[in-house]
Nucleic acid binder design. Structure first.
Lengths: 124, 124
DNA sequence: CAGGATCCGTAACGATACTG
DNA sequence: CAGTATCGTTACGGATCCTG
């Protein structure tokens, strides 16, 4: 857990940075959380995530698919039907991220209290 | 865009989103990782993180301090000396984020393999 | 229905200069 | 040394239109 054990990690251009960014991005966490529940179609995800544009949802899904976290199953039917689900490794990340998210939520009260203290200490 | 339809936690404007963003941001993770090792001064952090501008480091530290994750100890001396360290709750987040980061790194090979497969499948 | 292509505004970021 | 202030750029995200 010490940084000195992995010095190269502490760099902005570390390759893990990109992956971490993908799974913790604004829409990434929400998509992973939704897929953690069950597979979803494109429009289902759009509705469940809420507030995401088509462009960003498609982009998010593509990067997650490319990283090997999401499986895309496009059925050759009319009208098109595409199902998204988590790969085994994708399920692992999703659970980690979701755990972190839950933890953050459990500490929200502390955070808000800290913010109030911080703000009132500066409000002259 | 009506987000109000979204029933569960899966909402873009969820309050935990902001906090999560702060601790998983580009510089946030690196600052937390550095402070997990030991307290640092401002310029120490700048050197250790590497590639961060003064502006972004200051901003990152302020956000983390406001959320109650980082403690700022400014000593009234000339020249100024400011030490940053993790609060108890800050240490918890830092460990969580650091765990996630290491996990991502342990899966980097899989990710790169998945990317190669994805790219070569489209290169045609 | 699923997504590509395009246009465009904002705000995040970096570099620099300046201050207590 | 530890920041703040200002400015220019970029890239991210949203809205819209279009297609298989």
């Amino acid at each position: 857990m010490t940084v000195s054990e992995a010095p190269n990690v502490n760099r902005a251009d570390c390759p893990s940075r990109g992956v971490l960014e993908h799974v913790t991005s604004r829409w990434g966490v929400l998509v992973l959380a939704a897929l953690l529940d069950r597979p979803h179609r494109f429009s289902e995800l759009r509705r469940e995530v809420g507030g995401v544009s088509e462009k960003m949802l498609a982009q998010t899904l593509q990067t997650l698919e490319r990283d090997g976290f999401v499986d895309r199953d496009a059925k050759p039917v009319i009208p098109p039907r595409v199902d998204y689900s988590l790969t085994p490794v994708g399920r692992e990340v999703a659970e980690q991220v979701w755990t972190l998210t839950r933890w953050v939520e459990s500490k929200l009260d502390d955070v808000f209290a800290a913010r109030s203290a911080y703000d009132s200490a500066r409000a002259v």
